[in-house]
Design a protein around this nucleic acid. Structure first.
Ligand SMILES: [Zn+2]
Ligand SMILES: [Zn+2]
Ligand SMILES: [Zn+2]
Ligand SMILES: [Zn+2]
Lengths: 127, 127
DNA sequence: CATTATAATGCAAATCTTTGCAATTGCGAT
DNA sequence: ATCGCAATTGCAAAGATTTGCATTATAATG
């Protein structure tokens, strides 16, 4: 692996926008700064970064996968299928489960961004 | 919603093959039994079935989402990023966490097929 | 049974993503 | 600095998925 300018641009983009971005949004953003950049290069770069663990990819129910920088601490989300609201779950809530599974199954788990779907308090009433 | 033959065909297909199938595999299978069926019809039917909760869709690291019938009991998996081996996790291991989250966040969680990535015992050594 | 409303389907176009291959670039080793 | 290798990139083609719109089929209603 060597120093790829596409990778660098994408990491900077994800660093500024603190949110979950789709590959299309990422392409739009880097395209502004480097119009010559080819879409396939962006897709391949994203693939690379995810494989290296520098970027996390998740399905958050938006119809397209979303990417974000892998933080120092894992974090997780609840996503409401009624109103689309996204709740942050601190890793404390999840870490014990992960530890247990690692012990029981002799696994080293890499997943660090769980997304669980369901209905928030409000949307349960209307359902 | 009404009785769709595409939905029916897909449910039967998923019922026979007890494994996780990609949308492409599903299309191939139903196409054999009903060659006139259009790809977009299959995609839309899958979308419908997932929304109705009859079918579960997950990313298991195969490069494409996989579908399976929603069973009576939830189940979950560990997927090794080294050798690709898939381990079944019984719901007992996960259910308590889900209950806790539901209580703490006042949520009704619908996710019933967690997939966690990592490295199995063998592949940790070679890593 | 005829009528109407609604859901599902086919088709084609538009989009999005992946892939093969040749050209280029960055990096380490002479 | 130059060479050689392997990773990255662009480009075009292939492939996969989504979408808009017209048509057809189903189910409920009168
Ligand atoms: Zn997140
Ligand atoms: Zn809600
Ligand atoms: Zn499964
Ligand atoms: Zn393994």
């Amino acid at each position: 692996m060597r120093n790829s300018s596409a990778d660098q641009l994408i990491l900077e983009t994800l660093g500024k926008q603190k949110s979950h971005l789709t590959s299309h949004q990422i392409y739009e953003a880097v395209h502004l700064r480097l119009p010559a950049l080819n879409p396939s290069t962006v897709y391949r770069a994203l693939d690379r970064l995810v494989n290296q663990g520098k970027v996390t990819v998740s399905d958050m129910g938006l119809g397209a996968a979303v990417f974000e920088l892998t933080g120092e601490k894992p974090h997780h989300h609840l996503v409401c299928q009624g109103c689309g609201h996204i709740t942050l779950i601190a890793d404390d809530q999840i870490a014990p489960l992960i530890s247990n599974l690692e012990k029981n199954y002799h696994y080293k788990i890499k997943t660090n961004h769980l997304v669980l779907f369901g209905f928030c308090e409000k949307c349960q009433d209307t359902a």
